[in-house]
Every structure is written in structure tokens, then in C-alpha cells.
Write a protein that binds this DNA or RNA. Sequence first.
DNA 1: TGTATTGCATGACGATCGTCATGTATTGGC
DNA 2: GCCAATACATGACGATCGTCATGCAATACA
Lengths: 185, 185
Amino acid sequence: MRMTSERKAETRERILAAAGTLFRSHGVDAVGVDAIMHEAGLTHGGFYAHFASKEALVAEMASAALARSAARWERISEEADAATALARIVEAYLDPAHVAAAERGCVLSTLGPEMARRHDARPAIAASIRRMLDVLARCLPGRRRQRALATLSAMVGAVVLARLCDDTRLADEFLVAARNAAGLR
Amino acid sequence: MRMTSERKAETRERILAAAGTLFRSHGVDAVGVDAIMHEAGLTHGGFYAHFASKEALVAEMASAALARSAARWERISEEADAATALARIVEAYLDPAHVAAAERGCVLSTLGPEMARRHDARPAIAASIRRMLDVLARCLPGRRRQRALATLSAMVGAVVLARLCDDTRLADEFLVAARNAAGLR
DNA sequence: TGTATTGCATGACGATCGTCATGTATTGGC
DNA sequence: GCCAATACATGACGATCGTCATGCAATACA
């Protein structure tokens, strides 16, 4: 039974990963359980051995993805001094490569409004947001808390707006301006 | 034929308004043509006398809603001096009432990521974003263009993040921090 | 006033949705 | 090596989706 449930946990991770990619690429409501299971190399029927419903999968995917993001930020802030950590976090977020790779991008900017409508998922998401804010506050000088809130807002907004621009030049302008607003040059 | 097509244009506006409310409340893919027509006081069949497809309606709804937002900002910036206009625009956007009333809220923060995936809709959206940036640049001191880009990013990001918070206190913190970042107090 | 036009309703289509009952093949424990 | 357990596949369900063909009632124009 140990080996079996280990395998099951692995499969569950594959389903979560497939859902993460597909939801971010096409939106939650545009992707069916069928497509997710196919992407995970399975068929649709076995889904309910792993999740109670599609809605439960959505909530867990968002929660897990954001917890991973928060953990990565925490690790960076522990491995480097404040200024270096801030630069690494903010520059990676405001990189044109992040804008282009929405399927692996931050859930706040790929699925923010969609998740805001799913009230069950919000507590876990808010918890990760708090962790991210704490990391940014540790890395920023001055009025830390306020600057952390403003910086995270500018990061999320700039990526959302950059993805809305059909013109790469305007998109890059948003990214550069948000970097400068965070105190980077 | 004049009176007739006038009536038809009115109905078309009702459909657009209904779509705007429902899409912002529940997301584009969560709302069917049936629900939109019902909200407009009609039945589903007549829809295709007004729009070529649901996708065409989505694009036009976003385009029209953002053009209205841009026009409102332009009007405000013409009726008041720079500092007053900036305060009116930014404070209205970062008002808790705007966060709460997503069904009438700015399309950038209610449907941003969803519209970013619909490439056909992006040119019209980008055009309105440019108009909004021009208004903000006119109202801001210093490095106007850069500050306009950063301010709009912070506004959109703060509202997205505030809607993700299950806790009103944290949500309001985002709004206040973004206001301060825009130079308001 | 009669006729052509047109805005919208009715109803149906194939496809796809989320969910679950059942079957099967594989595995761990004896 | 057999038996019980279980991970996943097959297949089907009712509902809902976007779309369109058709019909009707109301209106503009003669």
C-alpha cells in the first residue's frame, strides 16, 4: 500500500501541474477536466479519485502555485542581501520572458480576477500574498510595509497590462517603469 | 426603416450593457449567450441578428467599455487642473467601492488576463490604454511618461490584489499604498 | 390599405461540459 | 502464489454550450 499511494501522489502532482499550465494558458473555464487529464497522460474518468470536483482542483492549484512562488521569494531573500534579493525578485517578475510565458507565470497576473471570483480559494491565496509582502518589506528601505504593497501592486499590474498590449514596445515600457518604481535602475 | 434601425441600435446597446455586467461579474466563459440575452430582456435566438459570434461581442464589449473609461478620464482632465484631475481619477479607481462593484468596474482589472488571451481584442484595448496613459501623463509632474506607466500599473494591480484578499483590512492597505505611490496623500 | 422588410422568438442541432457507476488490470500483504 | 485492495479506463448521464434555420408579428413604404 505504501508504493501504491506513493504512485497515486505522483499522479496527483501530474494532474496539478497539467491544470496549472492549462488554466494559466487558456483560463479556468476554457479548460475541461478531459483536457487536463489528457495533458497528464490519463483519461478523464480517474479524475474523481484524486479531487472531489473541478472547483476543488482549481482552488488547490492556485494555492499550491502561489505557495511555491512565496517559498521561492523567501529562499531568495535568505540567500542574498536585501538589495540583491529585491533586484532578483523584481527583475525576474518584470522580465519580458515572464510576460511571454504566461503558462508558467505568476498566478496573480495570469488568473487574478478569475480567482477573485472564487471565494473559497481566496484565504489560501491571501496567505501567500502576505508572505510575498513580508519578503518585499524585508528587502525594501524606508516605509517598508507601504512600499511592499505598492511594489507588488505595480508588478502585478505591469504584467497584466503588458500582456494586454499588442505592441511589444509599449509592453516593455510598462515593465521598465514598474522596475524604476520599485527603486531599481 | 429609420425608426426600425434606431430600435435595433437600442437593443444592441442593451445586449452590450448586459454582457458588460455579466462578463465582469462571472467571467467571459462562465456566461452564455442565453444568460446575456435574458438579462437584456430578450431570448437567445435573436442574438445573431446583432453580433456575428459570442467572440465578436466579447471584443466589442471590452473595446466599448474601455473607450468609455478613457473618454471619462479625458473629460476630467479637461475640466480640472492637473492635480485635481489626478486626484479624482486615482481616488475613484482606488476606492473600496470600485473594488466591491466589480460588475461595473474597470475592464482592465476585472477581465485583464482573460482579454489578454483574446488576441483579436487587444488592438482596441491597447488604444484605450494609450489614451489613459496620456491623461495620466498630462496630470503628473516630473518624468511624466514613466510615472504614468507606473501609476496605471499600480492602480490595476492594487485593485486585482484587493479583490483577491478575503480580508478587507489588507485590501484597503493595497488601495492606500497605491494612492500614496501616485503622489496623493 | 396592402405588401415587403425586418427584429426578434421558437425550437432544434451537434458538441462539450462536470460527474459518476462500473469494469479491469496491477499491486501489496499473507 | 493467491486474495483483497486500489489506481485508473471505459462509457454513459443530464445539462448546457454556441450556432442557426425557420416562423411570426410589427413596422416602413408604396
